[in-house]
Amino acid sequence: MTEYKLVVVGAGGVGKSALTIQLIQNHFVDEYDPTIEDSYRKQVVIDGETCLLDILDTAGQEEYSAMRDQYMRTGEGFLCVFAINNTKSFEDIHHYREQIKRVKDSEDVPMVLVGNKCDLPSRTVDTKQAQDLARSYGIPFIETSAKTRQGVDDAFYTLVREIRKHKEKMSKDGKKKKKKSKTKCVIM
Rank of each mutant, 00 (worst) to 15 (best):
D30L: 09
E3S: 14
T2G: 15
Q61N: 14
Y64M: 05
N26Y: 09
V14A: 13
H27W: 15
G12R: 05
D38F: 02
Y32A: 04
I46V: 13
I21W: 07
Q25T: 15
T35L: 02
D47W: 05
I46Y: 12
P34I: 03
I21S: 07
K16I: 01
P34M: 04
G60L: 02
E63I: 04
A18W: 03
I36E: 00
L6W: 04
S17W: 00
D57N: 02
F28I: 05
K42S: 10
Q61G: 09
E3C: 11
L23P: 02
V8T: 07
K16C: 06
D47I: 04
V14N: 11
Q22S: 13
E62S: 08
K16N: 06
K42Q: 10
T58A: 07
K5Y: 03
S17F: 01
V8Y: 01
E3L: 09
T2C: 12
T35M: 04
T20E: 04
L6H: 02
I55P: 03
L19E: 13
K16A: 05
D30M: 08
S39V: 05
K16P: 04
S39H: 09
G10I: 01
L53G: 09
A59H: 02
K16Y: 03
F28L: 05
S39W: 05
D47H: 09
T2V: 10
I46Q: 09
D30E: 13
I36S: 00
Y4W: 08
A18K: 04
I21A: 07
V44W: 09
N26R: 10
Y4F: 14
Y40G: 02
D57W: 01
T20C: 06
D47V: 05
R41P: 01
E49G: 09
I21G: 07
G13T: 12
I21D: 04
L52P: 14
P34R: 02
D57V: 02
S39Y: 05
G10R: 03
Y40R: 01
I24H: 14
E62N: 08
V29G: 05
T2M: 11
V7K: 07
Q43C: 09
E63C: 07
I36F: 03
V45W: 08
